[in-house]
Amino acid sequence: MSNPASAPPSPPLFASYVAIGDSFTEGVGDELADGTVRGWADLVALSLAFASTAPVRYANLAIRGRLLAPIVGGQLDAALAMTPELVSINGGGNDIMRPRVSIAQVADSLERAVDLAVDRGSHVVLASGANPTKHIPLGAFVEGRGERLAEAIRSRLPKDHVTFVDNWADAELAEAPFWSRDRLHLGPAGHARVASNVLAALGVPVAATPTASTGAQSPAGSAEPDAPRQRTAAYWREYVLPWIGRRVTGRSSGDDREPKIATLSPVDVSERR
């Protein structure tokens, strides 16, 4: 008979999970055949459901283009109203790409959001975004801000009931094969790798999916081999100029969009059992 004291601990399981954030958490770049997006948070929810003997419910309130204020405001309020056992928080990526930003204020807002969620009884995954700066215009400028934000967050941790997943420091994730055609959002392999990072930090096994099963490995070749290079006219015409146009007019790619999963819903694992 085995000694119970020597058995490995069971992974923490969560019966309800709500994700909040911007395009990174919504799943932009991991498009499915029907035109919807999946992303790392969906893959985390799937793995949580696989690891559990009871049903797991999941909501994703993230919306592309969102600045941090509405994420830690309306999104967080809606998330905590569902009293989830697990909340993932990411934000600030759009803020640091604006002409002016206070890194200290962004870090303060994230810390307050984390503390509020913990005070309300949730375990929190605080996930930093991946580093896109090798592949985008003005990358060095954005990287400097991103490094300062990452260091500000690291200096405030660890905290009880908080799991920090430092995707910004994942050097392999910064490489081109993990990114989508626009070079700003992760592709399917990148989202799978982030899911693997989160699940490893939580101690939960990765559920096998076409990309999640290999997400921890560097994919062979670029996920978007025909993507225009960032210094070409085609790239600027397709991605950069529309982005600048939205900034100038005060619009966002997420305007008039609703959350893709607005309420806690059962995670369907029947096809993968």
Rank of each mutant, 00 (worst) to 15 (best):
R66A: 07
L67Y: 10
A69I: 07
I71G: 03
V72M: 06
G74L: 09
Q75D: 02
L76S: 03
L80N: 04
T83Y: 13
P84G: 02
E85Q: 14
S88E: 04
I89Q: 06
I89W: 13
G93C: 04
I96A: 08
I96K: 12
R98V: 03
R98D: 08
V106K: 11
V106F: 15
L110V: 01
E111T: 08
E111M: 10
L116E: 12
L116K: 14
V118E: 12
R120M: 08
R120L: 06
G121K: 11
H123P: 00
V124L: 11
N131M: 10
K134R: 14
I136Q: 02
L138Y: 15
G144S: 09
G144A: 09
R145S: 07
R148P: 03
A150I: 09
H161S: 13
H161F: 14
V162F: 14
V165I: 00
D166E: 02
N167A: 11
W168H: 02
W168I: 01
D170R: 05
L173I: 03
A174K: 11
F178K: 07
R181K: 13
R183Q: 04
L184E: 05
L186I: 06
G187Y: 10
G187F: 03
G187N: 06
P188G: 07
P188L: 07
P188M: 06
A189C: 09
A192V: 00
